[in-house]
């Protein structure tokens, strides 16, 4: 049997969840034995080269490119997992959700205290992704099959989840891994 194929992406996140994936330390060698990586910042493969079994998403959607990537993952992955607070709830980027996007952009590019005088402009190049009215959690845009909570989810949790997923065994979720308050 060929190895399960995994793809990962970081959308509106801080890459902290990916750092946490790397935090499995030397077990990454075991992981390579277990799975094959496709599109992912881990191996720097930029586009899908085949259908993947598991897609792991860090971060929510704050712009049109995030939406595009997320939909692309849904098309190319059998199972899609939201990894971490931002993918699940929007996280820190969603702090802007209570403020109209017009105010956010004007504060960032026109009126903020660190803006230099002259030539103020809100970036409008067609090459740039379009900003969404608010930050969306992934499951509001595509179907998400599993959620791994945490900010970031700790390495052991990610490891256990991935191993359970590829081996098809039930996952043991200790109370302290899901209690955050």
């Amino acid at each position: 049997m060929s190895k399960p194929v995994i793809a990962t992406a970081s959308l509106a996140g801080c890459f902290g969840c990916h750092m946490s994936i790397l935090d499995i330390d030397e077990r990454i060698l075991d992981l390579i034995e277990l799975v094959e990586f496709n599109k992912s910042p881990v191996d720097d493969i930029k586009t899908f080269t085949k259908m993947c079994d598991v897609g792991i998403i860090e971060g929510g959607c704050c712009n049109s490119e995030n939406v595009h990537v997320l939909k692309d993952f849904r098309k190319n992955c059998g199972i899609l997992v939201s990894l971490g607070e931002c993918a699940i709830m929007g996280g820190l980027p969603a702090l802007r959700n209570g403020i109209p996007i017009k105010e956010c952009l004007e504060e960032a590019y026109l009126h903020g205290p660190t803006i230099e005088k002259g030539n103020k402009i809100i970036p409008n190049d067609d090459e740039l992704p379009m900003i969404l009215d608010r930050v969306y959690p992934c499951h509001e845009i595509v179907k998400i099959d599993y959620f791994i909570p945490g900010c970031p989810p700790r390495a052991d949790l990610i490891w256990d989840a991935l191993v359970s997923l590829v081996k098809g065994t039930p996952m043991n979720l200790a109370y302290e891994t899901v209690k955050y308050d």
């Binding site: 049109s64 996007i101 017009k102 952009l105 379009m130 900003i131 009215d133 969306y136």
Partner: peptide, 9 residues
């Protein structure tokens, strides 16, 4: 979702 940000930019 992008209407407002495109308008202001």
């Amino acid at each position: 979702a992008v209407a407002d940000s495109c308008a202001v930019a």
